[in-house]
Structure formats: structure tokens, C-alpha cells
Design a protein around this nucleic acid. Structure first.
Lengths: 253, 253
DNA sequence: TAGTGGTCTAGACCACACC
DNA sequence: GTGTGGTCTAGACCACTAG
């Protein structure tokens, strides 16, 4: 990575800088390598630190860089492919499900979830927290909302609130016949309570996956999962090893 | 929206500001309404403009706001649900496909795409550009890579490069039996050439969907589609009207 | 304690939309 | 032109990690 000065062009400096850095990453750095610190990089390119940071933010958004306060900026490994949907619909907690149940409490679901479930906004539902780990890092957090009607044989006595209850709820869910499911994926930001677990700062971009599970002619459960957008690639279907296309593709004759 | 001063708390100012603004949007603004300009808002909350902008950026990322240079900041409508996957796999261009072919040229595919297609990096493939419109706005752009082997009956004479060729390639594709497909979704940024069409600035966040189409025992085509992350919610399966959960969910007893 | 990235400020000027 | 959001600067201080 040279001591290149930026020539003046019509595109924003931070964008040009992003391109230059991106190419440097391709050709001169390997995964895990640490970059010079921000003050030094800014000086090298002759821009203000804020401008340099804008370029780094871009590259982080694209999953090319990883920055940690107090540590430094490193070249990120390729994104992890996370199987969100396999061929057949499955209940959460079915055999082979990699999500780890953390705990379970009862409470009111957020309005949109309550509406989907067809329960009153005030009616308590089971709220199950789970997390997904890949390569020793938590990469996703999930809230699973299950109305009492979906697990009729579960009584409060069965298990105290906490991990044990979580497992009971999941076990009871398997007794229902899953008629189908659908999903929606959108961009979101990390929930304040998850920021710590996911090792992210407030506002970090997340891929939010909302899944509805259908049984007995109604929506039997709703899951809202948030995946670290910087490190995850969500896969749907047979796949697993789709290669990513994250550079700007060259144009064509 | 009051003239509230921010009290000092341990969370970053911009984050607290985001929360305050978010609540104001819920209670005091309706879709399409324009907010006071940034300089005024900053003054009102007693912060620097840059700090206010950080909060607005968050809300834009969450799809709550829409900002346009020279115009102002408005309250965004709920995200548009875009069906990415229906029940059965379909070729691009199949009846009912809402994508508009724009043109088609021949060129080399980016390395990862070439690898997936099983062609040499230098071997030209058909590269088809398409766009997707919703509510009069282009919300997604797509590049479809089709190796010559997948459309053997298409000759250069059939159609000149351009929209006509695009339609020919799609027509030829339908002749193959589609054995299956898989997808990957990840966060990306807008390609420089698409920025204009999509009415976005460089670096705007996009949901990138890579689809592989399988036929005759190999990967017969690869599509790389980028959807505006601010305005789109991607749906998979039966759905269509899943309600979004974009506020920070309240925690539970 | 030293060094990193994260937050914040108070300015300036630019690009663009609309009148 | 006027007003908007977008870019950029040159500083300061804070929060965190690691030696």
C-alpha cells in the first residue's frame, strides 16, 4: 500500500479511498493482518481522519474489514455461510437445529408480532431467547414467540423460567404438525440488549429474518432472528458454499 | 417533537438521539411528512450537526427515514415486501416474473461467478441486466450470467446486443428443465453504475441476493441481484404481508 | 500506561432540487 | 438564487485493550 496521494476526481474522496484500499486489501494483505492505525492511514493519504473512517466504514459494511476498539483494524475472513432454510420446513429446536436456547420467559409480544400470532397485545406469550454460534463467535440472536395455545400441554409447573423451560417449549412444539413457514429478510440494527453478546456497537447493521410457522390453520409461532451482517451470508436451499461476489463487478463490452 | 435537551447518560449521544427521534416519529409524524432541516434539528437538540446526522443515518438504515439532497428528510413508508422466492423454482423471465430486462452483452464474468458456472474466467458469457420496479421506483438491479452452453441454440445473428438479445436469452433459458436453485443473501453496497438508476449515493446499503440455477447436472445460470436495503423487505415462501418488527422490542418479565 | 478505534465539535464548502 | 442534504477538515476527548 503506497503513500499514494489522491488525485482530484469528481467522486467523493472517501469513495475513491475505499476503492484504493479495497485493491490494496486484495493484493497486499492477507486475512487477519492488521492495518496501520487510522491516524497513520489518514496522514498517508492526506485526508482527515473522519474521511478515512468513512472509507473504512464502507469496507466494514462490505465485510472486508473488522475493527475493534483498543485493538485495531484487521482484514476480515470471508463471510460465514449460515443455513437459514433447508429443503424442508422444520420447527425450531428440531434435531439438527444449531441454535442454543438461552432462556424463556412470559411476556407481551411487540404489537406486530402479536397481530401475526392473532393474540391480544396484552396477552402473555412464551418468549424464548436463543443464540447461534459459528467459529466460537455468536453470530445471531433470536427471539421466538410462542402463544400458550401452541403448547397446550405445557404448564407453568413443568419447568421454571429459564433454560429448562425453553427446552420444554421447544419439545412441545415438535408435537404439532408443521404445515409450512415463510420468511422475510430485511436490514436492521442490533438490539441494545444483544449488542454485548454479539460483540457489536449500538447501531451495527444486522440481517433480520422474520419467520412465521404455520400449524393447525394458524400462525403457531413467530421467530425474529438477527444475524451479524458483517460476518454472515444467509443461505437458502440446497447450497452452503455459494461463493460471494463482493467486489464491484467489472463492466462488459 | 419537543426542544428536549439531552441529559447525560452513558450511551453515545447519537444513539440516544436516535431513540428520541424514533419515538417522535412514532407519535408525532406521519408517512411522507418532512422533518425540520438538519441544522435546525441539531440546534434544537443542542448537538453538532455531525452528531445529529449519525442519528439520522441510523434511522435511515432502519428504513424509518428517507433523505434526499436538495429536498429534505421525510418519514419513510413501511418497507415494500418483494417476493424473492415463491413456492416453486422458476427460471428468470418465466411468466409472472416482474423483472424488466434492460440489455444484454457478452463479457467475462467476475472470478467467483465464473467458478460457480464452471467456465474459464476469460470465457465470455451472456450478461443480462434487469431491473425491478415497485411503486414507480426502481428498487433492485440484477446481473444474470448465462454461459453460452446454457443457450446453445442462440446465435449471435439471432438478435443484436441490447434488449432484444436479453429477451432471446431468457426465452432460450425456458427450454431447459430447471432442476433446482439456491440462494444466498448478504449485505453489500450499491455498484457505482447502479447508483444513478437506483437513486442512491455511492455506498448505500443493499441486500445482495446470489441465486444459482441448476439444470442438466450443472449450474446453468447465476444471478446477482441487489435490492435497496432501505426500502425493501425480501420475502421467501407463501408470505407477502409479514409485518416488520423494527423497533427495539421491549424486554420481558 | 500507551495505543487503538469511537464520539463529538464547529466550522467550511459542494452538489443538487426547486422556484 | 435559496435551501437542502453531502462532504471534508482539524482538532479534542473518551472507552477500551493489552502490555
Amino acid at each position: 500500500m503506497g503513500t499514494t496521494q489522491l488525485e482530484s476526481v469528481s467522486e467523493p474522496k472517501y469513495w475513491h479511498l475505499r476503492t484504493v484500499l479495497s485493491q490494496a486489501l486484495d493484493s497486499e494483505f492477507s486475512v487477519g493482518e492488521v492495518l496501520p492505525n487510522e491516524r497513520e492511514l489518514a496522514a498517508r493519504f492526506g485526508v482527515a481522519r473522519a474521511t478515512l473512517r468513512q472509507a473504512l466504514e464502507q469496507l466494514e459494511l462490505e465485510g472486508r474489514l473488522q475493527r475493534r476498539r483498543g485493538v485495531g483494524t484487521t482484514v476480515a475472513p470471508p463471510r460465514v455461510g449460515v443455513a437459514v432454510e433447508t429443503e424442508r420446513p422444520l420447527w425450531p429446536g428440531a434435531p439438527g437445529d444449531a441454535w442454543q436456547p438461552a432462556d424463556c420467559a412470559q411476556g407481551a409480544a411487540p404489537a406486530p408480532v402479536a397481530a401475526t400470532l392473532g393474540v391480544a397485545e396484552t396477552e402473555p406469550v412464551h418468549i424464548l431467547r436463543r443464540s447461534l454460534t459459528a467459529h466460537g463467535q455468536i453470530v445471531a440472536a433470536d427471539l421466538l414467540y410462542v402463544p400458550a395455545a401452541s403448547v397446550p400441554e405445557l404448564t407453568a409447573i413443568d419447568a421454571p423460567a429459564g433454560p429448562a423451560r425453553a427446552r420444554s417449549v421447544l419439545r412441545e412444539l415438535q408435537r404439532l404438525t408443521l404445515d409450512g413457514q415463510d420468511r422475510a429478510v430485511e436490514l436492521g440494527t442490533v438490539r441494545a440488549e444483544d449488542a454485548k453478546d454479539l460483540d457489536r456497537l449500538p447501531g451495527a447493521p444486522m440481517l433480520m429474518v422474520t419467520t412465521r410457522f404455520f400449524a393447525e390453520g394458524r400462525t403457531a409461532a413467530v421467530s425474529v432472528a438477527t444475524y451479524r451482517a458483517d460476518t454472515c451470508r444467509l443461505t437458502f436451499g440446497a447450497s452452503g458454499d455459494v461463493r460471494i461476489v463482493h467486489e464491484t463487478e467489472r463492466r462488459v463490452s
